[in-house]
């Protein structure tokens, strides 16, 4: 059963992290990746660039319109995700609690089931 763990980040919170906290988060993610790879549950992870680099494409008059900036004005953004293949939802949630972001006030993780997947041929 595949689940995506979305990492909700708040740039204001990230800016105020101490170097020690940043290091803990970095090491925590490395350890998380290593542990889920070892257990055969890891599928993929991606970290996304700052929302200021987003382009939004949406239906316009004759053709799709492209604008700068994030899709909606919001304090929190999706910072990246983990794609995991686990036994059930309980395990996905258990893994989400092991991600260092879960210990930083102002950051959050969202666990959602995958309904369709095509990972290509390789």
């Amino acid at each position: 059963m595949k689940y995506v763990i979305l990492m909700q980040v708040d740039p204001a919170v990230l800016e105020q992290l101490t170097p020690e906290q940043q290091q803990v988060i970095g090491e925590g993610h490395s350890a998380f990746i290593a542990a889920t790879k070892e257990s055969g549950e890891f599928v993929a992870t991606q970290a996304l660039g700052d929302p200021s680099r987003s382009k939004v494409v949406r239906a316009g008059g004759d053709r799709p319109e492209v604008t700068d900036g994030p899709f909606v004005e919001a304090k929190e953004f999706m910072g990246g995700f983990y794609l995991l293949d686990v036994e059930d939802e309980a395990r996905a949630v258990e893994l989400a609690t092991q991600i260092p972001d879960a210990r930083i006030p102002g950051l959050a993780l969202e666990v959602r089931p995958v309904v369709f997947a095509d990972l290509g041929d390789g």
């Binding site: 055969g40 599928v43 993929a44 293949d85 990972l119 390789g122």
Partner: peptide, 15 residues
């Protein structure tokens, strides 16, 4: 068959 990366399956088998 499971739409998973080969490395994930390989790791499960090794483990």
């Amino acid at each position: 068959a499971y739409q998973l990366p080969e490395t994930t399956i390989a790791q499960r088998i090794t483990r």
